[in-house]
């Protein structure tokens, strides 16, 4: 990136930075009134996210009092540390966590961003969606909400079924809709593409839209259950407003053995894709094994929420210094 003379200037207006401070105050009040404890957890960890489609940045810690040099991952979300607090009996917790995702840079992404994440023991997905709804309606002053299943969206907008349509049909549709060479895309790849290219832009135009019942293969760290058509789905929701993905919530996986299996499966997928393996978080597996309360948790893009509140078009409009100026 060239060093332009004007790049010393913030990418956000001072007005938007004031709005940012206000939003933070509003969020803090919201959780205070709900009796949710604010916590801070480390940004650096020995283990990283194994998810094949999340790229962690790394850092190095050595010298001084550190006798054994450490390679540390910058968190892609504060999930692992927060779940360890839950297992230790913290009760409901929230934090605004600076998180890092390598390479994620666009009008809606910045490799370093603020994630608003919280966990509620005893909640199921519906309880948590109601809470997300009340926070968002307070911040954005919107009252309309809707909830649709992943399957119904594909049926309504694309006339295919993400679970039962032939892979070749999904590939052909991906090709016609976007011009991609789809022969080597798997079912999830096709669905990811069709979702982001054809469905997302239409979501939450005048209302906040929750999408539920994702295919089980996209469960990540959520529990898996059967939907009313007998297919396995993830107990997970995503929340959209004005075509922007705002939040991703789970009825959290609490089974240590299943968690270890998913870490291993992620690394297996990384090997197949020729990506470096990532150290799985044994501490998390041990924490789950020691017993973690049944809970639901959600990660909400704080910068994106602010972007919508400010009526801004780009994430950089609400971040003091986006990565090109950092």
């Amino acid at each position: 990136m060239s060093l332009d003379k004007d790049l010393w200037c913030p990418s956000a207006s001072i007005e938007n930075l004031r709005l940012r401070a206000e939003l933070l105050k509003q969020v803090r009040n919201f959780f205070d009134e709900c009796g949710v404890l604010e916590v801070q957890t480390p940004v650096l960890g020995r283990a990283g996210s194994t998810d094949a489609y999340l790229n962690s940045m790394t850092s190095h810690c050595s010298g001084g009092g550190v006798s054994e040099p450490l390679d540390l991952y910058l968190q892609t979300s504060p999930e692992f540390h927060m779940k360890r607090l839950l297992a230790a009996g913290s009760g409901a917790i929230w934090q605004l966590a600076i998180s890092f995702r390598n390479g994620e840079y666009s009008e809606r992404h910045n490799p370093e961003f603020a994630m608003l994440e919280w966990y509620q023991p005893g909640y199921d997905l519906n309880d948590l969606m109601a809470e997300v709804q009340s926070l968002i309606s307070e911040v954005l002053e919107v009252d309309n909400f809707s909830c649709q299943s992943y399957r119904s969206l594909f049926r309504a907008h694309l006339d295919v079924d993400p679970f039962s349509s032939e892979l070749s049909e999904l590939q052909a549709l991906s090709h016609t809709k976007t011009g991609i060479t789809a022969d080597d895309l798997d079912r999830d790849g096709c669905c990811d593409l069709l979702m982001s290219a054809c469905i997302e832009p239409l979501l939450g135009r005048d209302e906040i839209t929750f999408v539920i019942d994702y295919p089980a293969s996209q469960a990540a760290l959520a529990k898996v259950k059967q939907d009313y058509e007998g297919d396995l789905v993830a107990a997970r929701f995503e929340c959209y407003y004005r075509g922007i993905e705002l939040a991703n919530g789970y009825h959290e996986l609490t089974d240590a053995e299943e968690q270890a299996k998913r870490f291993a499966a992620d690394n297996e997928q990384r090997r197949e894709l020729g990506l470096p393996e990532v150290a799985a978080d044994q501490h998390l597996v041990n924490a789950l094994a020691s017993g973690i309360p049944e809970c639901a948790g959600v990660a909400l893009g704080f910068d994106r929420l602010l972007m919508l509140k400010a009526g801004a078009d780009r994430l950089s409009d609400v971040i003091s210094f986006s990565i090109d100026r950092a």
Binding site: S106, D192, E245, A299
Partner: peptide
């Protein structure tokens, strides 16, 4: 060149 990436799942470039 537009980078498109859902929170979970594969990234694409439009």
């Amino acid at each position: 060149n537009e980078y498109v990436k859902p929170g979970k799942g594969q990234a694409f470039n439009r």
